[in-house]
Simulated assay, not measured.
Amino acid sequence: MKDLMGMMKAAGEMKAKMETMQAELADMVIEGRSGGGLVTVSLSGKGDMKSLKIDPSLFKEDDIGVLEDLILAAHNDAKSKVEAETQSRMAEVTAGLPIPPGMKLPF
Score class of each variant (00 low, 15 high):
Leu105Gln: 07
Ser57Ala: 12
Gly36Val: 11
Leu105Ile: 14
Gly65Ala: 11
Ala84Cys: 07
Leu72Asn: 13
Glu83Phe: 07
Ser42Asp: 00
Leu25His: 00
Gly102Lys: 06
Gly36Arg: 02
Ala78Asp: 01
Gly65His: 02
Lys15Gln: 15
Lys17Ala: 15
Leu72Gln: 12
Ile64Ala: 12
Met21Glu: 10
Met1Glu: 12
Lys53Cys: 07
Ile99Asn: 03
Glu61Tyr: 06
Lys79Phe: 13
Pro98Lys: 13
Ile99Lys: 02
Pro98Cys: 05
Ala95Pro: 09
Asp77Arg: 00
Asp55Ala: 11
Pro56Trp: 03
Asp27Pro: 06
Ser42Asn: 04
Leu97Cys: 07
Ala23Asn: 14
Leu38Ser: 04
Pro56Met: 09
Ser80Val: 14
Gly32Val: 02
Met103Ile: 04
Leu38Gly: 03
Ala26Ser: 14
Leu67Phe: 01
Leu70Pro: 06
Met7Leu: 14
Gly65Met: 06
Lys15Met: 15
Arg89Leu: 13
Leu4Val: 13
Asp62Trp: 09
Met5Gln: 10
Glu19Pro: 04
Pro100Ile: 07
Thr86Met: 12
Lys53Phe: 14
Arg89Gln: 11
Gly35His: 04
Met18Asn: 08
Ile54Ala: 05
Gly96Lys: 02
Thr40Lys: 13
Glu85Leu: 05
Val39Glu: 00
Ala26Leu: 03
Gly65Ile: 02
Asn76His: 12
Gln87Ala: 15
Lys9Met: 12
Val41Asp: 00
Gly102Asn: 08
Gly96Cys: 10
Gly35Phe: 05
Gly65Cys: 01
